[in-house]
């Protein structure tokens, strides 16, 4: 695998799987305005995954969709942290959102300094969208700062942020579901 793929696939997989997980809130968020806002974040995350996959796909001679859907579960390099199914627990969802944005900001800073101009350019674009995610996470972090269940969630999730390697059992179920239509007709265009 190319150096670029090694660098970008874990990030793309994180964005994809987190986006997929957060999309489970679409339509059932705590209130309607938040539902709309959180859905935009989901769309950005999937969009970031797509752009990152595209850079890798160009090198590997494949497509972003093939990378997102057609690998076997053990080929995904996302962290166990993003795999967790947290719906309908808003406290843990926001805790993960906050912790993820914090870690992602550092990762994006490093990517922006990459020698690969395409990688650095994309990282800068992604970072401009992530700025809104960080504002959103910050708002909620402040709002829930005194809520015991939120503080517990932060404690519980903080050690898991960059746990990679084996996948969670929840990931197997997610992979089944996210690829089921695509696998149902071999080689089809959707």
């Amino acid at each position: 695998m190319s150096e670029r793929a090694q660098l970008l696939l874990p990030i793309a997989d994180d964005e994809l799987v987190l986006g997929w997980r957060n999309s489970e809130w679409t339509g059932i968020a705590p209130f309607l305005e938040e539902d709309v806002a959180f859905s935009s974040i989901v769309q950005n995350e999937i969009g970031h995954a797509r752009a990152l996959y595209q850079l890798v796909a160009d090198e590997l001679g494949t497509t972003a969709d093939a990378l997102a859907f057609d690998r076997s579960p053990d080929e995904y390099q996302c962290s166990r942290f993003v795999e967790l199914r947290l719906v309908p627990d808003w406290a843990r969802t926001i805790a993960r959102h906050w912790l993820y944005e914090e870690a992602d900001e550092k990762r994006l800073e490093a990517l922006k300094a990459s020698d690969d101009p395409e990688v650095a350019g994309l990282a800068a674009k992604i970072d401009r969208e992530e700025a809104y995610h960080r504002m959103h996470a910050q708002m909620w972090n402040e709002r829930l700062a005194e809520e015991p269940r939120y503080l517990e969630a932060l404690e519980e999730l903080r050690p898991l942020v960059d746990g990679r390697g084996d996948h969670t059992r929840e990931f197997a179920a997610l992979w089944e579901e996210m690829t089921m239509v695509r696998r149902s007709v071999a080689g089809a265009t959707w």
């Binding site: 679409t26 059932i28 996959y53 972003a64 969709d65 997102a68 089921m180 239509v181 695509r182 959707w190």
Partner: peptide
């Protein structure tokens, strides 16, 4: 909503 998780392309 049920199909958001099953959409077959990005």
């Amino acid at each position: 909503r049920e199909w958001i998780l099953r959409a077959p392309t990005l």
